[in-house]
Design a protein around this nucleic acid. Structure first.
Lengths: 162, 162
DNA sequence: TGACGATATATTACATGTAATCTAATCGCA
DNA sequence: TGCGATTAGATTACATGTAATATATCGTCA
């Protein structure tokens, strides 16, 4: 039997290991979904990362330090600086230095950003449904469970060096 | 009940839609796994994309045009040129212009590349197992099935403009 | 007070992904 | 034959991700 992924990649032999097949399916599905979301965000002048930052800020409801935002995004700090630079240039965030600890810079979304997010809410939900809505709710729950379980391996690996 | 993802993202409210929760879990799991693989490949002087190109070439067993490689990688062509430039600089691929159709350039892995891939085979399998090995085989198969089913929505959406 | 280590950002260099545009070569068809 | 459309790659511009390093600030301890 040839799998869908095997056909997509024109791979000549079936997968040896179910772990490998699951991993590659994960990567491929994510890539294709990300492309879709990227297109949607670009229509509104945002990238996926920029949207993500703004969603985090809106969800928090109060200014957050760069560090906090970076942690929630699984992004390294160096990338955050440029990301925030561009958001600031678009007047979607404000930076404010903390008076107690002058190393810390608090980031806050502007009114313009909140309006932009509000415009995006429905299209984003619609895209989630378009991409995943053909799975039944039990399937979605199972997919979520399996992905969360998959991530559990990271906790133990993370400790071991190299 | 708070989900693992909700805790990870310090999200204040649970997810409204199971589609959204599954999507975000997909993105997050992929990001973290990709980070792991990226680290492994860097130890061998490769990036994930470079490794992917070489795997495609080895799997095919014969030279492939740039276009073909790009299609199997879900990558846009412009990126391929630079990617191949760097692989060529590392002497991991050779480019050869097709004599029949002089627009086409065939790409072929060098002996050095095949040796590098051979070195990577075991570590890559080991990492797949380390990341996914704690799922049972039925769980892995179900995860694969759900991800493949998820991608089926793309076939129909792809047609509709923007 | 003053040096030292830790922490929060920033800077630089480089690989990658996307979009838009360009060039060269081929194909179709009058 | 010869023009126009198509195709394969390359080029440019820009946003992003990673690594390594620099800078400013803070806390602590002598």
């Amino acid at each position: 039997m040839t799998s869908r992924l095997q056909r997509e990649l024109k791979k000549q032999r079936p997968f040896d290991q179910p772990e490998q097949e699951a991993c590659l399916n994960l990567v491929r599905t994510n890539d294709q979904f990300q492309n879709r979301f990227g297109k949607l965000f670009r229509e509104y002048g945002l990238t996926s990362s920029q949207y993500n930052v703004l969603r985090i800020l809106r969800g928090e409801g109060q200014p957050l330090p760069c560090q906090e935002i970076a942690e929630r995004m699984v992004q390294v700090v160096p990338a955050m600086t440029g990301l925030l630079d561009r958001l600031e240039a678009q007047e979607l965030i404000r930076r404010e230095r903390c008076t107690q600890d002058r190393r810390v810079i608090y980031i806050e979304p502007t009114e313009k950003a909140l309006e932009l997010l509000a415009q995006l809410d429905q299209p984003v939900i619609a895209l989630h449904k378009a991409l995943m809505g053909h799975l039944t709710v039990p399937e979605l729950k199972e997919l979520t469970r399996l992905l969360e379980k998959a991530r559990m391996s990271l906790d133990s690996i993370e400790e071991t060096p190299g």
